[in-house]
Computed example of a mutant assay.
Amino acid sequence: MIQIALATGEQLTIMQHFLQASHLPLAGLERDLWRAWLAWKDETPIACAGLERYGKRALLRSVAVAPTWRQQGIGSQLVRTVVQEAQALGIQEIYLLTEGAEAFFKRLGFQPIARENVPAALHASAEWNGACPQTATVMVLRCG
């Protein structure tokens, strides 16, 4: 059975390992991360996800699954858990930037949005400011 739990500060290096292995940006991770989650199988971390908070909005970032655990629904389970917990904490919209995972996020309810329609507060994110290229697709999930 897969367990999903909030990550501790000491577990940030586990997230960094997943992100590097998945070729995802590390920029702003330590500065901007509000909450982070790890998925575990027994005592082995197998996936991660994080949120940056900007008022009632958040940026979903750093969703990565260990290669041997991909295509088993773990990423979906993790993102659904993050969304539920974010909603419980008052987040009304969750945005993300992606290159190539649009279909995955669309299945989870995220919809593409034009870059110019993203609230200015999210422009403070390192992901918005160059960690993700301008060609990345922006998506949003409205929670309320």
Rank of each mutant, 00 (worst) to 15 (best):
I46A: 02
Q20P: 00
A39E: 07
D42V: 06
A114P: 03
L24R: 04
T13Y: 14
T98P: 00
A103T: 15
V65F: 01
P112D: 11
T137G: 02
R107H: 15
I94Q: 05
R107Q: 14
R142F: 00
A5N: 10
T68D: 13
T68G: 02
L38D: 02
A131L: 09
A131E: 12
L33W: 05
E43A: 13
L60A: 01
R61M: 04
I113S: 01
E43K: 14
A103E: 15
V79E: 04
R107C: 01
R107K: 15
V140P: 03
A131M: 07
A136R: 08
T135F: 02
R61A: 05
A21C: 11
Q84C: 08
D42K: 12
L108T: 00
E102R: 14
W69R: 01
Q134P: 10
L60C: 04
L38N: 02
L29D: 06
V79M: 07
T81P: 00
V63Y: 05
A124N: 13
Q92M: 05
E127C: 05
I2L: 13
A88L: 11
A131K: 09
Q92V: 09
P112M: 08
L24W: 05
L108K: 02
R57T: 13
V65Q: 06
I113M: 12
P112H: 02
R107F: 00
G75D: 06
A47T: 10
G73T: 04
L89G: 07
E52H: 12
A136Y: 04
R70S: 04
I14K: 05
G100Q: 12
H17S: 13
